[in-house]
């Protein structure tokens, strides 16, 4: 086994609508980078700037190609006493946070995600590096999940 995998985890995947949201965001970036690159090449004749922007455009294209897989790689599981979270394809990451460590839960909505009815849930602990942010939850699901997390955290409260 080369990849890190948790064999007994049953992941709850995020909404496939997140693919559209991320694609739209990436496409906007692509258009801006490509447009600026074209302007630098044909209007300003600044070669280095055009090359830099061309590189950015290629990165944006690769990014777009990877968006669907990356969204499908995001998952979480509400276990008995902790929240398990995973994301990433090339850079894979698993985090386990005990519910009792919760300091607060944040729900955020970006402009594109709001149009699609999606929310992002952030689980904040006393450690800044944990970084558990679950994107692509349907607004109602996010609120249910938040209330659930708050109630389990209350029953399993631990100090710092």
């Amino acid at each position: 086994m080369r990849r890190i995998e948790l064999p007994d985890a049953q992941w709850t995947r995020v909404s496939p609508k997140l693919i559209a949201v991320d694609l739209l965001g990436a496409a906007i970036f692509l258009v801006i980078a490509a447009g600026a690159g074209a302007a630098a090449w044909w209007l300003l004749h600044v070669l280095w700037l055009a090359i830099a922007l061309a590189v950015l455009t290629v990165i944006a294209l690769v990014n777009i190609a990877l968006v669907p897989r990356r969204v499908r790689a995001i998952g979480y599981q509400l276990r008995e006493d902790d929240l398990l979270f995973t994301r990433g394809i090339m850079w894979k990451r698993f985090v386990a946070v005990p519910y009792g460590r919760m300091q607060l839960v944040d729900i955020q909505r970006g402009p594109i995600a709001r149009g699609m009815g999606l929310s992002e849930l952030k689980f904040v602990t006393a450690a800044a590096s944990a970084g558990v942010t679950i994107p692509g939850l349907l607004a109602a699901d996010a609120e249910t999940l938040r209330d659930h997390l708050v109630s389990v955290a209350e029953s399993r409260r631990a100090g710092l």
């Binding site: 080369r2 990849r3 890190i4 090339m90 850079w91 894979k92 990451r93 698993f94 985090v95 386990a96 946070v97 005990p98 460590r101 602990t125 006393a126 450690a127 944990a130 558990v132 631990a158 100090g159 710092l160």
Partner: peptide, 16 residues
Amino acid sequence: PRLQSVAIEQGPALRM
């Protein structure tokens, strides 16, 4: 009792 959370990570070089 002081641990807040735990993570494992793997990049391409580590995977190889």
